[in-house]
C-alpha cells in the first residue's frame, strides 16, 4: 500500500460540529434501527395472544437455553469493548484475542438460535403455523440476521488485525463496528425480557 493510500484509509471526514461524519451517520442509522425493531416488537406484542391454534408461547419458549445465549451475547459485548481498547492501545495481540472472542461468542449465540428454530419446527411451530410463529420468527430472525452481519464484520476486522492493518489510527472503524454490535445486544436485551420472560 502506498503512503497516499494508507493515508486515505485512515482519513476521517468531520462534520461542521467537529464530529467524525462516520460516527454521526452511524448513530443516525442506529436511531433508524430503533424504529425498525420497534415495529417488529410491537407486532409481536399485539398479536402474541391472537393465535387460535398452538403451540403457544408458554408451551414452547425455553427460558434456560435462552438465558445462556443472552449471557453469551452480553459477554461478547464486553469482549467488543476490550477489543476496541486493544486497538486503541496499539496492542495487536489483544485486538486479535478479543475480536476472536466476539466472533466465537456471536457464533455460539447463532448456534443457540439455530437449535431453537430447529426445535420449534420439530414441535410444530413454523412461520406459517399461527400468528405467534409468524411474528416470533420474523422478529428473532431479523435479529439473528443482524448478528450474522455483525459476525461477518468482526471477521473482516480480525483479518485486518492479523495482517497488522488495524493501527490505533483506525480505531474509529472498530468503534463503529462496536456500536453496531452493542446495538444488536441491547435489542436482544429487550427481546429477551418482552418475548421470553414476560409471556
Amino acid at each position: 500500500m502506498t503512503a497516499h493510500a494508507a493515508a486515505a484509509t485512515t482519513d476521517h471526514h468531520y462534520t461542521a460540529t467537529g464530529l467524525p461524519s462516520w460516527k454521526v451517520g452511524f448513530w443516525t442509522f442506529i436511531a433508524s434501527e430503533c424504529l425498525f425493531f420497534g415495529t417488529l416488537i410491537s407486532t409481536y406484542m399485539v398479536y402474541k395472544r391472537s393465535s387460535v391454534q398452538g403451540p403457544f408461547p408458554h408451551e414452547i419458549l425455553n427460558i434456560p437455553l435462552t438465558s445462556v445465549s443472552t449471557f453469551v451475547l452480553l459477554m461478547s459485548s464486553l469482549a467488543m469493548v476490550l477489543a476496541l481498547d486493544g486497538v486503541t492501545r496499539g496492542s495487536r495481540r489483544l485486538s486479535i484475542l478479543w475480536l476472536s472472542v466476539v466472533i466465537v461468542f456471536g457464533s455460539i449465540f447463532l448456534g443457540f438460535q439455530a437449535y431453537e428454530f430447529i426445535h420449534f419446527v420439530g414441535e410444530g411451530l413454523t412461520i406459517q403455523r399461527n400468528i405467534f410463529g409468524s411474528s416470533f420468527f420474523v422478529l428473532t430472525g431479523f435479529h439473528g440476521a443482524h448478528v450474522t452481519g455483525g459476525v461477518i464484520w468482526m471477521v473482516t476486522l480480525l483479518i485486518l488485525a492479523i495482517r497488522g492493518k488495524l493501527p490505533p489510527e483506525r480505531a474509529l472503524a472498530v468503534e463503529i463496528a462496536g456500536l453496531y454490535w452493542h446495538f444488536v445486544d441491547i435489542v436482544w436485551i429487550v427481546i429477551f425480557t418482552l418475548i421470553y420472560l414476560i409471556q
Binding site: 448513530w27 436511531a31 424504529l35 415495529t39 416488537i41 410491537s42 406484542m45 399485539v46
Partner: peptide, 22 residues
C-alpha cells in the same frame, strides 16, 4: 451529546410508536 440526542430521537420515536400500536 450530539450522539446521545441522535440516539434518543430514534429511541423515543420507537417507544412512542410501540406504545401507540399496542
Amino acid at each position: 451529546k450530539v450522539f446521545t440526542a441522535l440516539f434518543l430521537a430514534g429511541l423515543s420515536l420507537a417507544i412512542f410508536m410501540v406504545s401507540w400500536l399496542i
